[in-house]
């Protein structure tokens, strides 16, 4: 290999026009974050939707809407305002006890969203820790944890939750715990699989050769490469969890009247679906919009966290 030739052919390959990379330093992380959010269609739509939902939910008490608990025999089964018999006082109609649907959706959002998000966060964190443990330590810990996961998956989830609910009681906080205790297995499985995939990659070996601490290894090398999968699953999971809440509430555990939840409303309108469809349809739409906005945001978040995407 002649030296002159080597440099000749090397030039076009390794020498590129000088690019000033200074702008790539995240000098203003918040600005970068917002810029990325605003430039992504799904991120923007998701963020606006979710912000609107949260804003409406928080201001439920000061909005000019009807009293969600007020019953009235004369206003039973009123349809939405744009249909015949509809009245402007009840824009989305009323239920079988004459209560305003719109008001109940707005007031019910609080408990549904709180349950959905906290149960997902709690089970996600639990699953993340246990999945890391199983994947990294392996051996007996892995064996025991994974058999436990199999066992929980083998028992019908509803039955399992009913049993746990019997022990911990009903209410929002117990409900979150009950759901989290069944739901963590999903995350444990994903995290463990991802750990097994990532931990044998050469950059992890390189980090171990560099003698980095275990916490650094996990936080810097494993988690950033595992989280994208978890984020995707978690955003989809929020919807499922809100529905689980509704099933439990319907069965008499979880959120009990007079507290309002979307799940209850869905269950309430179930029998009148043919005649008074609006009782369960509108809470259903609210639920769909919420889940949709979270999925869109999650989609963007996954891309934002990946440096390989522009």
């Amino acid at each position: 290999m002649t030296q002159s030739l080597m440099t000749d052919t090397r030039l076009p390959k390794d020498t590129e026009p000088y690019v000033d990379d200074a702008h790539r330093q995240p000098a203003r992380p918040l600005r970068d974050f917002l810029a990325s959010l605003l430039s992504s269609k799904s991120g923007l739509v998701g963020a606006v939707l979710l912000a609107a939902i949260v804003l409406i939910t928080l201001s439920a008490d000061i909005l000019p809407i009807a009293d969600p608990q007020k019953r009235s025999l004369s206003t039973r089964y009123l349809p939405p305002v744009w249909l015949e018999r509809g009245v402007i006082a009840h824009p989305l109609g009323t239920d079988g006890q004459g209560r305003d649907i719109l008001a109940r959706i707005i007031h019910g959002a609080r408990s549904s969203v709180i349950v959905g998000v906290s149960a997902v966060l709690l089970s996600g964190i639990l699953g993340l820790v246990l999945g890391l443990l199983a994947g990294l330590r392996g051996g007996v810990i892995d064996l025991v944890l994974m058999r436990l996961v199999d066992a929980i998956l083998a028992i019908p989830a509803m039955l399992f939750m009913l049993v746990v609910a019997l022990v911990v009681g009903s209410g929002i906080a117990p409900l979150i715990v009950v759901i989290a205790l069944t739901n963590w297995v999903v995350y444990t499985r994903i995290v463990r699989a991802e750990v097994l995939r990532v931990k044998d990659l050469e950059f992890v070996a390189a980090a171990r050769v560099s003698r980095v601490r275990v916490t650094t290894l996990i936080l810097r090398h494993l988690l950033p490469n595992i989280l994208p999968a978890v984020v995707v699953v978690a955003t989809l999971n929020v919807g499922t969890v809100i529905l689980t809440e509704s099933s439990l509430s319907f069965l008499g555990f979880g959120i009990q009247p007079p507290q309002i939840s979307w799940g209850q409303m869905l269950a309430d309108g179930r029998q009148q679906l043919a005649t008074s469809w609006w009782i369960s349809t509108f809470p259903g739409i609210a639920l769909t919009m919420t889940v949709f906005s979270i999925i869109l945001l999650g989609d963007w978040l996954r891309d934002y966290l990946d440096p390989r995407l522009p």
Partner: peptide, 14 residues
């Protein structure tokens, strides 16, 4: 110290 085979998987992409 060591230099690994696969220059892609030996560097943390993040």
């Amino acid at each position: 110290q060591i230099v690994f085979q696969d220059p892609l998987s030996s560097l943390n992409p993040r």
